[in-house]
Write a protein that binds this DNA or RNA. Structure first.
Lengths: 223, 223
DNA sequence: CGCAGCCTTGAAAGCTATCAATACTAGTGG
DNA sequence: CCACTAGTATTGATAGCTTTCAAGGCTGCG
């Protein structure tokens, strides 16, 4: 049920039940198949989204055909909220499903009105967008201050923290090429880095499951 | 005068005079010398800032001593607004003056209260932070999809648009090494790229002033 | 069983960083 | 007014990392 899910989304944390219900009433369920495009860069803004299950890839395309994955979005995460407030509301990236994915679409207009009535929601939204700024700044720094190995190690350690899985088990959310692009690396390089970490005894790789067998040794690969 | 300046800051655009006056009353003037540090990464958040004159460099330091300039802030621009809304309010970057700089510091607390009373201000703030997200996404994409030449050309063209100086005159806001770092390039590479563009007849360089003599030819250097 | 997609591995090329030296500028003090 | 100096920018040569191109291996599905 939509309401159930919304409650666990940080953006809606701490909201009164009635507000939550109102949001849920507006939310439009959407399904997205594997490799299916939700919107393209430049499309006019209609609303933003909450992921219920599955994974979304936000990417930017170069004129050469290359693409860079800007972000990978998983369950209970929102995306495109910041587009609401741009002067020219059009999506700056492309969104595509990486697997069969269930979404909720939150249309711009009713949400916009709700913001004016509910300061708490607005405050949450500012927090969400601000965290995104923070993460992007980290990404920019990582892309210039760290080499490929450093970025991969940083990603693994961050994911181990966040997932909180004991024993340092990390599982890549999507196919490796997408993670590689997210980290600003070619798939081949990503594979080679993992191989080197494995040979060094820092990790064990089995399919998309990675065990951080020696986090300290792993951390030594950071610049 | 502070009030005069605030009026021209996008963040405060369209606000009632009384609100503007209130903000101005709280604003604390600060002076920053060349290379003087305003705050370091990790310092507890006290407030955010408006640049009156001069230039600020926001940078992130690696453990190796290297630094990456995340953003260059000029007159009438604000920075660190997004830090207000992080769960753990501490500055994620270092701010340093690149020249003698006049600032206004807007302390967190009174501002926070004002936000709850003034939806318009909150809306502006969301717009400002969202634009920052947008720019950062562009930066991330540029760092991975374009080579050094592409990023320099992109920067020159963007600055020519924004400055709106006729005849395509661009002047670098600060010393070249800072601009280079902002673009994710070493100073030597930046110098070489400019030299190549000059030899190709696309630009003329004189000190920190650059003339875009042939924007079309310049654009051909983009990937 | 065979095919398609994904991942891995190898070799070579390209771009950028790094190290080093020189030119240049601006600000300082004689 | 000129010489000096420190900071800044340019240029050259080399090394290193990553990308690119190519081929082989693995897996899951029809």
């Amino acid at each position: 049920m939509a309401l159930e899910l919304l409650r666990s989304v940080p953006l809606f944390a701490g909201l009164e039940e009635e507000v939550l219900a109102e949001v849920a009433a507006w939310a439009r369920p959407r399904h997205l198949g594997r490799e299916e495009v939700l919107f393209r860069a430049g499309d006019p803004f209609r609303g933003f989204f909450v992921v219920c299950s599955g994974h979304i890839q936000l990417s930017r395309l170069a004129s050469t055909g290359q693409e860079k994955v800007v972000e990978l979005i998983g369950p209970k995460e929102t995306f495109a909220e910041a587009v609401l407030f741009l002067d020219q509301p059009s999506y700056p990236v492309e969104a595509r499903g990486l697997a069969p994915t269930e979404l909720l679409e939150l249309p711009a207009e009713p949400f916009n009105r709700l913001l004016d009535e509910r300061p708490h929601l607005t405050r949450n939204l500012l927090g969400t967008v601000s965290r995104r700024v923070h993460r992007l700044v980290q990404d920019v720094a990582a892309l210039t201050l760290q080499d490929a190995t450093g970025r991969v190690v940083g990603y693994l350690l961050a994911r181990a923290d966040q997932a909180g899985q004991e024993g340092g088990r990390v599982s890549l959310p999507v196919k490796k090429a997408a993670v590689a692009s997210r980290l600003g690396v070619q798939p081949e390089t990503f594979s080679r880095v993992l191989a080197r970490l494995r040979e060094a005894g820092a990790i064990e790789v089995e399919r998309e499951r990675i065990r951080l067998r020696d986090p300290d040794r792993l951390a030594q690969f950071l610049p």
